[in-house]
Design a protein around this nucleic acid. Sequence first.
DNA 1: GGCCCATCTAAGAAGACTCTCATCGGCCGC
DNA 2: GCGGCCGATGAGAGTCTTCTTAGATGGGCC
Lengths: 219, 219
Amino acid sequence: MKSILVVEDEQRISAFISKGLTAAGFRPQIAADGITGRDLALTGDFDLVVLDIGLPGLDGFSVLKQLRAQRPELPVLVLTARDNPDDTIYALESGAVDYMIKPFRFAELLARVRLRLKESPQEQEVTELVRDEVRIDLLKRQAWVGGSLVELSARELSLAEILLRNCGNVLSREQLLSHVWGFDFDPGSNVVDVYIGYLRKKLGTDFVTTVRGFGYRVD
Amino acid sequence: MKSILVVEDEQRISAFISKGLTAAGFRPQIAADGITGRDLALTGDFDLVVLDIGLPGLDGFSVLKQLRAQRPELPVLVLTARDNPDDTIYALESGAVDYMIKPFRFAELLARVRLRLKESPQEQEVTELVRDEVRIDLLKRQAWVGGSLVELSARELSLAEILLRNCGNVLSREQLLSHVWGFDFDPGSNVVDVYIGYLRKKLGTDFVTTVRGFGYRVD
DNA sequence: GGCCCATCTAAGAAGACTCTCATCGGCCGC
DNA sequence: GCGGCCGATGAGAGTCTTCTTAGATGGGCC
């Protein structure tokens, strides 16, 4: 199992990332400021670092530079709140392997983490998720139910994917909302319910189970 | 450079695949029937096989089985004209690593070929294409022009991607049409022109050069 | 049973996307 | 210069996607 260091001061965001990474099968650890982050990263216990640029204590750029200097092989994925291309370009030039601009959808962060941690050709990438009669092709963006083809929209696919990847576990509306819609999406909305309805209509009523008071689950 | 064997009897389709693979930096070779295909595949000169199921002479399934038996490590990507889930499931069970249903967009075939040939962690995947002021992020599905963010639709992104990946080469309307829209798309349409116009509006007039009588090129 | 609350669903508005059609403009050969 | 052809572009139709709203449904507790 891969260890990931999350250097992020906003508790809301670090918790969000941490939970998501855990659900995806990674072992995350949080550092709330630059100095702690740098020191932890340099221990060598981590396979990847998710680094916020806007940090208290020690600026993210400085952390990035020190990591580059001392552990050039450690992949760093930079988060920046400022929608400023100069920042991101500077980050990439300083050695970040990738970057994301807040607010981001968790699914995208996960895709990037997976991409950067991929290493052995043995562990073939998952391009299909199967559960009983339902088969979802992530590359084709299509689903098969029994023998017939079903087209899924981008949102529907994204929602189905996270449910299937966490097969057996209940996912709360908030989790689904932040994973699929982004962590700053209006929490009062009932989009999740509506899209669960769409999935049921397309993939069969019993594709998702409602767990009253908690959320949804695919068994 | 990777060698790819294309076993396909329809000349129109094999030529289409072959050209596209060449443009993408692969070395393709065509076999027009099952027996030739099987014999070539067994020489061991190829890194991947694209195999049509509906073949004259020797059925695609038989070819697949023989390849599995004698070269289990050789990745085979199956093409099937029949929109029949049984066929594809059977193909996968027989050991195909992946499948595509005709008609397909070439871009998708390419994505699958790349995925299956990927092997060393060294050659990091391309997630960004850059050319002068224009930067395109394939994962984010966004573009940056100078310092500002531009949203691209799925079609626009796909078109921009193939143009950028073939930087310096002229691509004909037919090539673009088959790559982005699929090889059976109405050849009389001027969608390509229209979408080139959209790209110019979003990415700058001089992003693409028109080569009168031939097609378009990104320098 | 009756009530409350969580969940489901139908309907629809707004907007994005894709493509066609028709017209306009300019390049090229004569 | 002129005509014809190739490409550019504007308008718009049809469809799909996404999200909100509001009312219907139904579970669980009293």
